[in-house]
Design a protein around this nucleic acid. Structure first.
Lengths: 141, 141
DNA sequence: ACCAATGATGGGTGCACACCTATGAAATTG
DNA sequence: CAATTTCATAGGTGTGCACCCATCATTGGT
C-alpha cells in the first residue's frame, strides 16, 4: 500500500515526515530519562555557551520565558542544572550546568547519533554529510 | 544569539527543526481553508489511487481508523469527498473525491509549493532536487 | 523618590495528534 | 445457523507544544 505520489512529490511533505520521525525517535529516547526535547536544548545551550539568565535561554532557543521556567524547574529537580540569583542583577536567575548535567547531555548526544543512524540508514557517509549541509543552510534559527 | 553547535551538529535536530517549519507552514495554509494535514493526505490518496474504503485509507496513510472517520466527516461537510456504502460489502464505506475536492487539492498543492519556496530559498534548483532525493530515500512510508 | 521597564514565576488555555474502548451492522467461518 | 471477525462510528483520554496574562521583585531613568 503505497503513499500517494502527490505527497511524496512535495519536499515539504518529506521534510515534515522525516523530520517527524527524527523528532519522535529523539523524543522517545529522551522520555526514557524523563526529559523532553527542550530539556536537551537547554542543556546544550548551557554546555556550549556557559551559564545563562533564563531570559537569555528564552531568546537563544526561541522558547517562551514562562516555559523556560518549567523546563529549568525539571532540570534542577533532576540535578542537571542549578539556579542562582545573579548578585549583579538580582532579578536575573543564573542557570548553570552541573557535572551530572554535562554527563547526561553526552548520553543524550550518543542517543541522538543512534537515532540518526536508523533514520539515515539508506545513505552513505558522503550523502549524510551532504544532507546535513543542505539542511543547515535551510535552518534559520 | 546563536543556536548551540551541539544541536546544529545533529542531523536529527536539523531534520526535526526544518521539518517542523515545513509542517507549520503547510498547516498554516491549510488552516486558512479549515483543513489540517490529514485532510490533504486523504485527498491525495483519493486523487492518486481512486476511491478507498475507509479501512484502506487508514492502512495507506497509517492513521487510526477512528480518526479517518472524523477526517472524512469534515471532507464530506466541505464538499470535497462523498461517502457511499459499498454494495458488494455493505460494511464498507466507499469514499470518493468530488470535482470540488480535486480542485481543492490542486490549490493545496500550489500552496505547498509556495511553502517549499520559502523554506528552500537558500538552495538552487539542483540542490533542491538533491535534497528531495536524499529525503525520499530516508522516507519509509 | 517615583515611575517605567525588566526578569522570573504561576496559572491557565487551546490545538494537533495519537491512541483506546465500546457499540452496532454486516460478512465470513465452521 | 451460531460464533467470530471485519468495518465504521461515537466518544473519550493523554501528551507535547505554543501562547497568554497577572503578579511580584528588582532595577534604571528622570
Amino acid at each position: 500500500m503505497e503513499t500517494p505520489p502527490t505527497l511524496t512529490a512535495l519536499t515539504t511533505y518529506l521534510l515534515s515526515r522525516v523530520g517527524k520521525a527524527a523528532r519522535a525517535g529523539l523524543a522517545e529516547r529522551l522520555a526514557a530519562g524523563g526529559l523532553r526535547l527542550w530539556h536537551m536544548a537547554v542543556l546544550a545551550a548551557l554546555a556550549d555557551f556557559g551559564p545563562h539568565a533564563q531570559r537569555d535561554l528564552s531568546a537563544r532557543l526561541g522558547i517562551d520565558p514562562s516555559d523556560v521556567v518549567k523546563v529549568v524547574d525539571e532540570l534542577v529537580a533532576a540535578g542537571h542544572a542549578e539556579r542562582a540569583r545573579d548578585p549583579a542583577d538580582r532579578r536575573r536567575v543564573r542557570v548553570t550546568l552541573t557535572p551530572a548535567g554535562r554527563t547526561a547531555l553526552a548520553g543524550l548526544n550518543a542517543q541522538a547519533a543512534e537515532v540518526q543512524d536508523v533514520i539515515l540508514a539508506p545513505l552513505d557517509a558522503r550523502e549524510r554529510a551532504q544532507l546535513h549541509d543542505l539542511l543547515r543552510r535551510c535552518f534559520t534559527g
